[in-house]
């Protein structure tokens, strides 16, 4: 039904225009994704404070039960370390060192995946039944949502690292992924920037809920 577009050719100006739009979309997309995440975790925080203040049947948190503290601290530290590594990597990336970013990225990915695994392990080692208190319920909810967040962050980072390897040859003569003006490189940079901000967001979420569940 669509008209044949075999001889359809975009002008260089149009390509440049759409490329700018795609870069902007990467920026808006990553920020909107953080917006989605913010409302997801805000809903969890709402549940936490709501059940805490309601304290139904005095079962918000009997005997101040706490999830395994060491595991929780480790998961939090791993999330924060991944975020720090990706931020440092992105900083080096902006300075032109793609290899530094790659090394930091792979290390961050490893730590993030470890955090993911530890979170699963922690959920199997809880000293309370999921339904024994409001605290227990929200903690299980946090575990599930943290898994989703970590999985998403790790997936994004991994795709970028894999893309970076494939990109290397294509942009080698054009100054590398950090400097190339090729469309693929520009979009790659936009995505790296978005991923870094997203990991920063995950780290903020991790510190907030770590404080809520283990410190308070």
């Amino acid at each position: 039904m669509a008209t044949p577009v075999a001889n359809f050719k975009e002008t260089p100006e149009e390509i440049a225009y759409e490329l700018r739009a795609a870069e902007g979309a990467a920026w808006i997309g990553s920020r909107s994704l953080i917006g989605v995440g913010a409302f997801i975790y805000a809903s969890l925080a709402f549940a936490y404070f709501y059940l805490r203040s309601a304290n139904q049947a005095q079962l918000w948190r009997p005997h101040h039960v706490t999830a395994p503290t060491e595991l929780g601290a480790a998961i939090f530290a791993l999330s924060a370390a991944t975020a720090a590594l990706s931020m440092y990597g992105a900083y080096r990336f902006r300075r032109g060192s793609v290899v530094d970013w790659e090394v930091a990225g792979w290390m961050g990915l490893l730590l993030g995946a470890l955090g993911f695994a530890l979170q699963i392990y922690e959920l199997t080692r809880l000293p309370f039944y999921p339904g024994s208190s409001g605290y227990a319920s929200t903690f299980v909810g946090w575990g599930a949502l943290n898994l989703v967040g970590l999985l998403g962050g790790c997936y994004w980072l991994e795709t970028l690292l894999a893309r970076s390897l494939r990109l290397r040859r294509a942009v080698a003569e054009d100054g590398g992924a950090a400097n190339s003006t090729l469309p693929a490189a520009r979009l790659f940079r936009a995505s790296v920037e978005g991923c870094t901000v997203f990991w920063g967001f995950l780290a903020i979420v991790a510190v907030c809920f770590w404080a809520l569940f283990y410190l308070v």
Binding site: A57, G131, G134
Partner: peptide, 12 residues
């Protein structure tokens, strides 16, 4: 078997 919405187990 969490208790987010079950009043008698600390949910609401």
């Amino acid at each position: 078997l969490t208790a987010f919405y079950v009043n008698e187990h600390g949910g609401s």
